[in-house]
């Protein structure tokens, strides 16, 4: 079991219990691990690595309720990262790809790479394409840092509509990221 596993698992479990600072630290550390993971596997497509880091982070966030603390975090993260990599390659090449017999799940949380490159696609541009009922809740709550109550007052939406808007908006954003992989 790697040091990354213990440290990140602790942060993830705290994050899922509602500790936002721990969750932020988890995502930050995870992004460096994912970057190293994807760069090593996309030697011929270096520009795609940062896009895939972002897509995987969004997937991790959208599906964080599927993590069960009795399970190694490494296995969970690796399955998502590998799935997103295979999906991207399939969309680019139009066929089932990712035939990587040497792939070892244990190394996903071992190496990390803090040097972010520019993502090819801009998440902000995709965000701007969402309908208002999703875009505005994300803008106010997730970007401007307003509370749900304040965002509800500003938009005239109900508090639950704000929460649903954030949730569905991030799912829709993930779908837009996937589709933007098709060249």
């Amino acid at each position: 079991m790697s040091a990354g596993e213990d440290k990140l698992k602790n942060l993830m479990v705290l994050g899922n219990a509602g500790d936002t600072a721990a969750y932020h630290a988890f995502l930050k550390a995870l992004s460096a691990h994912l970057r190293a993971f994807f760069r090593r596997r996309l030697v011929q497509l270096p520009d795609e690595a940062e896009d895939l880091v972002q897509e995987t982070l969004l997937a991790v966030h959208n599906y964080r309720h599927t993590y069960d603390a009795s399970q190694p975090l490494t296995a969970w993260v690796h399955a998502i990262a590998r799935y997103k990599l295979a999906d991207m390659l399939r969309r680019r090449t139009g066929r089932e790809a990712l035939n990587d017999p040497l792939d070892d799940e244990a190394d996903v949380l071992v190496s990390s790479d803090e040097q972010a490159m520019d993502a090819k696609r801009d998440v902000a541009t995709l965000l701007a394409q969402l309908p208002d009922r999703q875009r505005l809740p994300i803008q106010y709550v997730k970007l401007d840092g307003l509370s749900v109550v304040e965002a509800a007052r500003l938009t005239g939406m109900s508090e639950s509509a704000i929460k649903v808007g954030v949730h569905r908006g991030l799912k829709a954003l993930a779908e837009k990221m996937r589709v933007s992989n098709e060249h």
């Binding site: 994050g15 936002t20 966030h61 994300i138 997730k142 840092g145 509370s147 749900v148």
Partner: peptide, 8 residues
Amino acid sequence: LVTLLAKG
């Protein structure tokens, strides 16, 4: 993006 996802 990390900050966006973690916020709230």
